[in-house]
């Protein structure tokens, strides 16, 4: 309610042209970038269309968004990422709980996962193509492997931070391993799990899209590399803008989910 009452006054302030200095600086930076870009595009210093004008990119953006086939490719990529996150996330959750629950297992296996985590996963792509073919299967596998590592490590770390009293309460009720996982472990570490999945989503997105750019006939990654191959630069820039908006939007949605859960909890 307060927001509703406050909104007109903020709008009026903006309408009066009173912008904070930070906003002014931001606008100035964006304007400077656009101007430099336009000057570079008009200068003819760069090879044809390497730096297309902002207007050409905006037109391409509208064309891409108005094209029905784009949404089919987008849905393919989104389904691949969702499947990757479901597979890699479930595996990360189960193995993370096992590692976090056992010091012996954690010390035996976790160092390997910790050091394998930051290796560039895309190098496994040739193996995944052999195993799952060049269709969506290899992209899902690429995304699943990519997101598995941050999720398993954050779940294992979170397991070790569960208050002992909660575990003892579960044990005193003679809860089985399944009940302990569903009713004690997962609820107690929901914030780190959400954060792990947030990290995992970003990395699954990168893995899946990189795999699409390397070898695919569908998906947003395929569209980007196709625009590059046809040297349709405005379209490629438009695709990259959409992709970054999609990545940042998905990330902030999960961040909000984490915060909303935090305020309720």
């Amino acid at each position: 309610m307060a927001d509703t009452l406050g909104a007109p006054s903020r709008a009026a302030t903006r309408a009066a042209g009173v912008l904070g200095p930070v906003t002014m600086v931001r606008i100035a930076i964006v304007a400077a970038i656009v101007l430099i870009w336009e000057a570079a595009a008009a200068s003819g210093l760069f090879y044809r269309d390497v730096v297309p004008s902002v207007v050409a990119v905006a037109r391409a953006l509208v064309r891409v968004l108005a094209d029905a086939s784009f949404y089919w490719h987008l849905s393919v990529t989104m389904l691949e990422i969702a499947a990757a996150l479901a597979i890699g996330g479930t595996a990360g959750l189960v193995i993370g709980i096992a590692l976090g629950g056992s010091r012996l297992l954690s010390k035996a296996i976790e160092p390997y996962l910790y050091y394998l985590g930051p290796t560039p996963k895309i190098i496994f792509f040739p193996v995944l193509i052999m195993l799952f073919g060049i269709g969506p299967g290899s992209k899902v596998a690429m995304g699943a492997i990519s997101c598995f590592f941050p999720i398993v490590l954050s779940v294992a770390a979170a397991m070790r931070q569960i208050p002992l009293v909660l575990i003892r309460v579960g044990q005193s009720f003679r809860a089985g391993p399944w009940d302990m996982a569903l009713k004690v472990y997962i609820p107690a570490m929901r914030h780190p799990i959400i954060n792990g999945f947030r990290l995992g989503l970003g990395i699954a997105l990168i893995g899946t899209l990189l795999a699409e750019t390397k070898m695919s006939n569908r998906g947003i990654g395929h569209l980007i590399i196709q625009a590059y191959a046809l040297f349709d630069m405005p379209r490629m820039y438009a695709m990259l803008i959409i992709l970054f908006a999609f990545a940042i939007g998905a990330n902030s949605l999960l961040a909000r989910a984490g915060k909303a859960d935090g305020t309720m909890g």
Partner: peptide, 21 residues
């Protein structure tokens, strides 16, 4: 104040996907 959040957003952005660019 104007750019620190942008830098942080850039840190979590899928920069590697810009390789065609």
């Amino acid at each position: 104040q104007a750019t620190e959040t942008w830098v942080a957003a850039f840190a979590s952005a899928p920069v590697v996907l810009m390789y065609p660019l």
